[in-house]
Design a protein around this nucleic acid. Structure first.
Length: 414
RNA sequence: GUGGCUGUAGCUCAGUUGGUUAGAGCACCGGUUUGUGGUACCGGGGGUCGGGGGUUCAAGUCCCCUCAGCCACCCCA
């Protein structure tokens, strides 16, 4: 065992795992494309204030999980813990408010200084979508249905459940917030320490507590639906109607509260029981005030982010390993001609492994290890006839093939 | 950040109440003579037993610290 370990909470994506990782990303891209979402990429670090202002001073992500560095100039930058703030910043920086709505997909690494465990690394990857400029429930519905389709095409949808809630508009949330503070204040002595801290800062989070004492209190706490104003209620009704129309099942979870402060109205979460404690696989919601909060033009938004590693773990599908064709030249003259043949076949779209050294036997062994489907053996005998021996490595059958007919003969291996 | 479990070759694991040069399977490399792989047989390389300190005549085995992973809390994708 080497003493050179990767930094805590980080890991390498070796080819087998990277193939699965990439499958998740390619699926996200393909599905997003059909929904009209274009991929963008924003920097993996931003000025610290981009995250501080948007995620909220009370969120754990901001208060204890950010990787923040001070630059020589004294400026503070932070490795992005999520990408919605970065997309919003890019939206503003590039004046995209002139071409609403905008629909974006992003993929890439995020960084949070948490205690690592299964499904939770310090550097992890998300694929997410953001829809900016649509204040109607159709936006929420489209974004959720995009998530559903994504999970379906990964083959993991059956292992997830969709939980749904509404956080109302700011008026409703403010009303509910004070009702909660009033209610829980009467039980200060019974609240857990964590929840006591949340009481003034973010009482909604108490609803999500797993502390037994808290849960008893939560059971009789005011319910949000009593504090929703007409607009918020109508909005939620319409979102639900849309999901029903699309046959997307969900359960209402009144305790589903997003951890980041910018959310309003729709909050949703696809969870699984198959990954242990880190069961959230794709989650998001609406954030109508985010861009205004950042100093931009009031622009509604809705989106989600998914955990690529978690999806990859959940995905049971076997990803086929690539099967190359091995070229095996024998002798100096053959080496030269193999170089040209390999190049031509590559240009024709084949994955070609050009053995680097060794005799026929060794190269065949190596071809076998590379899971090659066929080998092209080029010796003086064959070359004298401008041909090579094409050997099928599964059946063991082989035949003499003219070099200029090789592309055609190989077509069965595509 | 809190608590619990774990850490021996690339991988999966043995290693007896602390006792000589630390083992197996798989993997890897080489061989079983000529230009034919997968199977079989033979041989080989590879470990400062996660790291550091301590107890002891003697530590992979006991104690302390530390690092990492896993599980739960927490948080969240």
């Amino acid at each position: 065992m080497s003493s050179l370990q990767p930094v805590r909470g980080t890991h390498d994506l070796l080819p087998a795992e990277m193939r699965r990782h990439r499958e998740v990303l390619e699926t996200a891209r393909a599905v997003a494309d059909r929904f009209g979402f274009d991929e963008i990429a924003t920097p993996i670090f931003e000025k610290t204030e981009v995250f501080k202002r948007t995620l909220g001073d009370t969120s754990d992500v901001v208060t204890k999980e950010m990787y923040t560095f001070e630059m020589k100039e004294g400026e503070e930058i932070t490795l992005r813990p999520e990408n919605t703030a970065g997309v919003a910043r890019a939206f503003m920086s590039n004046g995209l408010s002139q071409q609403l709505p905008v629909k974006f997909l992003y993929c890439g690494p995020m960084f949070r200084h948490e205690r690592p465990q299964k499904g939770r690394q310090r550097q992890f990857h998300q694929a997410g979508v953001e829809l900016l400029g649509v204040d109607k429930p159709q936006g929420d519905i489209e974004v959720i249905s995009l998530g559903v389709q994504f999970l379906k095409e990964l083959g993991v949808y059956e292992n997830t459940v969709l939980e749904l809630n509404t956080l109302g508009d700011s008026e409703s949330r403010a009303a509910y917030r004070s009702a909660l503070i009033e209610y829980f204040s009467a039980y200060r002595d019974q609240l857990s320490e964590d929840s006591l801290n949340r009481l003034e800062k973010n009482p909604l989070r108490i609803l999500d507590s797993k502390d037994e004492g808290d849960r008893k209190l939560v059971a009789d706490a005011p319910v949000f639906s009593d504090y929703l104003n007409d607009h918020s209620r109508a909005f939620f009704t319409e979102v639900r109607a849309g999901l029903d129309a699309l046959d997307i099942p969900y359960t209402i979870n009144p305790r589903l509260v997003r951890g980041l402060d910018y959310y309003c109205h729709t909050a949703f979460e696809f969870t699984t029981t198959a990954l242990g404690a880190q069961g959230t696989v794709l989650a998001g919601g609406r954030y109508d005030d985010l861009i205004k909060t950042m100093g931009g033009p009031a622009t509604p938004g809705v989106g989600w982010a998914s955990g690529v590693e978690r999806l990859s773990m959940l995905m049971t599908r076997e990803i086929a390993e690539p099967r190359p064709v091995a070229i095996i030249p024998m002798g100096e003259e053959a080496e030269k001609r193999a170089l040209v043949l390999a190049n031509n076949l590559r240009l024709a779209g084949f994955r070609i492994e050009h053995g680097y050294s060794g005799n026929l036997k060794k190269r065949l062994i190596r071809a076998n290890k590379l899971n090659a489907c066929a080998a092209i053996i080029m010796g003086d005998d064959e070359l004298a006839e401008n041909s090579a021996t094409l050997r099928d490595l599964v059946s063991g059958e082989q035949s003499l093939v003219k070099l200029d007919e090789m592309v055609e003969k190989l077509s069965i291996y595509r």
